[in-house]
Nucleic acid binder design. Sequence first.
DNA 1: TTGTAGGCGTTATCAG
DNA 2: CTGATAACGCCTACAA
Lengths: 342, 342
Amino acid sequence: MKQKTGVTIYDLATELNVSPSTVSRALQNHPSIGKATIKAVKELAVKRGYRLNSIAASLRKQQTNNIGVLVSWINRPFISSLISGAEEAARAAGFNVLISQSHDSLDNEKDNVKAFFESRVCGLVVSLAMETQDFEHFNRFLENGTPVVFVDRIPDHLDVQKVIIDNHAAAFKATQHLIDQGCKRIAHFGGALHQAIYRERLRGYKDALQANNLPLDDTIILHGDLLSADEGQKMTEFLLGLPNPPDSIFSANDTAAVSAIQFAKSAGVRIPEDLAIIGFNNDPLCMIIDPPLSSVGHPAADMGRIAVQQILQIKSAEGKLVPQTIMLNTAVIARASSLRKT
Amino acid sequence: MKQKTGVTIYDLATELNVSPSTVSRALQNHPSIGKATIKAVKELAVKRGYRLNSIAASLRKQQTNNIGVLVSWINRPFISSLISGAEEAARAAGFNVLISQSHDSLDNEKDNVKAFFESRVCGLVVSLAMETQDFEHFNRFLENGTPVVFVDRIPDHLDVQKVIIDNHAAAFKATQHLIDQGCKRIAHFGGALHQAIYRERLRGYKDALQANNLPLDDTIILHGDLLSADEGQKMTEFLLGLPNPPDSIFSANDTAAVSAIQFAKSAGVRIPEDLAIIGFNNDPLCMIIDPPLSSVGHPAADMGRIAVQQILQIKSAEGKLVPQTIMLNTAVIARASSLRKT
DNA sequence: TTGTAGGCGTTATCAG
DNA sequence: CTGATAACGCCTACAA
């Protein structure tokens, strides 16, 4: 169980009759080292199987090469794609990705932030837990200058680096799509309103109705805590039981929308004729459910990739960059669940 | 961008008029330190906001607190659940999880193993890339005593630590289930046969046929490279075009099975009456497709959890443990896609 | 262009 | 039970 230490820069230095610092510098292409020396050092390094001890380097620099990624649940299509993108970008730049999940609990989130802090990650990508409404626990990072990039579920009133989609525009487009299909009474499944993403989606929905001179009816605007399948079913049941049920639903996620389709079908409601439905996220489920679910597609992997790139950029631009918000585009993906016209 | 170093054990030592070693030991509950001292040290540590510099500790010990997890694709239900379990177990024990994905390419796998090696992970959990048939790239870990645990897609001829499901039994049960439903001519969608999991599933399938005195017909045993939706469709198309098509399919994954349902339905084939289908993995898709897909369920998150626990155990049992194989149980989850009888 | 020396914060060894 | 001391391997002023 003893780990052989391996070749160090001292070994190389001794063998080449130069000093360790020269070796160190040569290995990093330091400009003030002679071409010949660099070449010699590198060749010997390869020959002797030298590998950088990144722990020692980290200690010296008080910084690891690890980027922390903190999400709610890894095993969700949107999140795992996001992580996938982040991992690719990090690895391409020679960084590792550390992950942890909050399970949508604020307490877990705090613990994990702390753990990342203690393990000295050199940057942090965060998508907030559903519960999270205060953000003090990120302060220690912000204070000590470690880059933090928020993704998707962000603290909207804080002046921090963000990578998001245009939720308002996306919701507007989705709602408009239903309207274009002839829907007049559109229900909405929303999420917890302290989360900006759901607030924005609600706003986009309302604005679209208004832009089309459609009335707003609060009785068909429903909110789930987690927008789970279970909640989706209950909300659908409620809607279908109304004296004046809606002719369509814009759901803020696909899980609830799929659930709506399943329940509606079981109740003998035809989709999309009696009830048109569009979801959000374009999860793989959309193409499996019958009829296929229309949805709003957004570039999950790109969000992860860009978040990591932001971190690297902030690090390299040592002087402060002003925190900026990067907003990515979305697209309505129309499928049979909402297509009434051809 | 300068990271304030923060409180060290020296600061605590000075303030308490003890030596740094005493502080270090107290913080770790070293048995030979007085109760009173321990208490005093810990209180002051909290008061001063001391946090362990794990980088320094790592340097000293030549070991990080990071466990590498190497998988094919993060964004697949089975894998992301596995990672989720691994992350939970690791975090509970105070370890971090580093992830990387091979995208099912051997070259990537090699690169990532190397990166993990260089970053000095203290253990490695691996599910092999589809391509992988040789395993030299893991030798450096095995040689230097870093625990490596293989999960699910394992190198079956190597004497290493493994966490797997009983693929043979699972396939036998799935096939038997179809037989119990009255199926007589059962096709099989298999994966690359150099992977033990697919070889075992094929074997279980064959053994079940034999145990029931059903003939074996190689023309309805098909193999996909990745068992993608696309391959599933092509294989189904092929089967349905046979002069003597099968009355059922046992697919080695759900993706291909779902695809089979979709294609069969579009071709006017009734499920399960004309064609009964069972998949493997019990992905979320199973409950979305219509009819719901029967499948073989296995504890993905547990596999991740157990793999991490194995690593920790191997580390603590410094003297060698003999590599063992942990085999987890599976269950046939019968749904409408295969239920012909009630 | 290269070398010297000190320190990053901890832990292990050895001595009291 | 506690202390002194020496690494762990690298980086970076500062000096030459």
